[in-house]
Design a protein around this nucleic acid. Sequence first.
DNA 1: ACAGGAAATGAAATAGATTACATCGGCTAA
DNA 2: TTAGCCGATGTAATCTATTTCATTTCCTGT
Lengths: 340, 340
Amino acid sequence: MTSIKNLQDIARKAGVSTATVSRVINSPDKVSEKTRRIVEQIIREHGYIPNEFARSLRSNRKNMVAIVNPVPQESFLSFPYFSLFLRSVTQWFSRVGVYTLVVLEDPNQSPYTTYRKMMEQNVVDGFIVMGLKRDDPRIELLNSLKARFVAIGHTGEEGPYVYVDSDNVQGGYLATRHLLELGRKRILMVNGFENDCSSMFRLSGYQKALEQEGVRFDPQLVINCDLEEETVFEMFSNEDFSLEADAVFATSDVAAIGVIKALKRRHHSLPVVGFDDIPMASSFEPGVTTIRQPIEQIGRKAAEKIFALVEGKAAQSEMVQVELVARDSTLRCQIQSDQE
Amino acid sequence: MTSIKNLQDIARKAGVSTATVSRVINSPDKVSEKTRRIVEQIIREHGYIPNEFARSLRSNRKNMVAIVNPVPQESFLSFPYFSLFLRSVTQWFSRVGVYTLVVLEDPNQSPYTTYRKMMEQNVVDGFIVMGLKRDDPRIELLNSLKARFVAIGHTGEEGPYVYVDSDNVQGGYLATRHLLELGRKRILMVNGFENDCSSMFRLSGYQKALEQEGVRFDPQLVINCDLEEETVFEMFSNEDFSLEADAVFATSDVAAIGVIKALKRRHHSLPVVGFDDIPMASSFEPGVTTIRQPIEQIGRKAAEKIFALVEGKAAQSEMVQVELVARDSTLRCQIQSDQE
DNA sequence: ACAGGAAATGAAATAGATTACATCGGCTAA
DNA sequence: TTAGCCGATGTAATCTATTTCATTTCCTGT
């Protein structure tokens, strides 16, 4: 078999021009039934697949989207279930012939460089930007570059951008209400830092639940930290750390586990709620009550939206619902806090 | 500022031909000092970045590498620490200007289609192929497509391909020896399926350790299963399941956790060793003794090797060392198996 | 001062598609 | 019959770099 490599070869074989072959591939309705059949046949016969790069060069459509992570330290790991997210995005894209690039922001440079470079290189149609922070400069940056993007997470204001996010307010609310329903009133909240917008929203859900039950909000009961297991474990293990609360809401499962371990060590037991529903939450003993984020749904929606934007269509920001998964860390917790 | 978009604009501004500008970028030593200075200045001034796709089209160098996962069900998740692996690959690549694509094999088609399509589309320089199985057909396939690739995992024979893999024999050996050193002789091995090559190697490490201690290998003590937590938990929870072994070596941490939970429920305790050192292994109580795979190192090496291959250089397959991480699941286990 | 070779540069071909514009039939309406 | 239009097709320009080959420039040695 003669080696068939490109459009021209196909055109020659089919006895038509390259333009016609291209049309058969890209807008079949502009070609007569008869010609189309012939060309399609030859394409199939030779298993011809167009060269993506040549195609992009001319049409300026890259069929590639980058998932961009903030600087390494806080990237992947900070985002629970990243691989599930990635899989769901990739899966969705593959059905429409789009490839998924994974990119880390260059830690040595301003994010500007990372994005600008990719824009100029003309390498992707758009971005999925992970881990949006409060007042995240990347939004303005991407807009100024006229980049198409979808953010995971949001800043609060409905800015000039599209995002997909879990309903963190609802998450905070559900977790807190669950504890209130168990009769707890002094709920310690172990939250992330204040510049993290999901922390912000979770806090407001927490407050909302308290308010609804007529419990006064005590700012002393809110701790901001990095939510690492060790950090939290150390903090709670310290004998000086007062355990006058009667429940704990930690806004990450690993933090929740840190709390539970420290409490165990101090022969203490309090209902504890986490956040994310990482695999460990169900495997740990006791199983950690937590707020499950539909991460695959978030991935799918992000993919859908960036694709729509690339196609020149409109896309709306969206919040996805979270749910409470009740497990032993709150259900089996019989021992009360020793309130002196 | 006039909009500077491409080589031509730069060439015009600098008063040279496009060829010269291209040379300044790609082989500066072929250009006179003086011209180079001028052109570089203009490039910097305008922040010009070449269009990757045009570049690839001509030079046939794509600066993209795909990490390919087997069909979704067994992909990402089956590979512990996938995101760490991915991060380390991406990080390494970014330093040499290569982008990382993440691809799933199309579950509806033969893997052939997935790889062939990418080859014809001319979209990547090479592949990192995940989750290699025994007699994996993908090796021959990729070779027949003249694709450059590096496999993660290996089949045993030093075939015509380059791989990076943990030393699974050593892993099996270390785990088993650790248990033997605790005085255990009847070590139950909960292994993956036999067509999985890492299972195969771990088994042979297990046998090697036994042999070295003069303990007879009893095939009855080897169980093949899917290594999921539930599967193993169910199996070990069943009262009919005899617990005549005096230790357990499960070749995945989640399986090990399944074992520990089931043993707890049966008020039983045996030293248990896992494999992988997933985050849960250290967080679980008791901490799971396990074999740590240097996953980031594997990622880095895979990146290095595929890059070398793409550059036309040689690359050698490599095994990376694993290490035993001893934790409470073997160290604190005082209770003996109740051998009737 | 000049031949000859090396170094620097430019013109044009090239990679492999898409697409604007031109052309050619065939068909309808006058 | 023929002007006029439409749909199908082809021609050639285009996208943006890289690279071959030809040409010019600059030395070096005699």
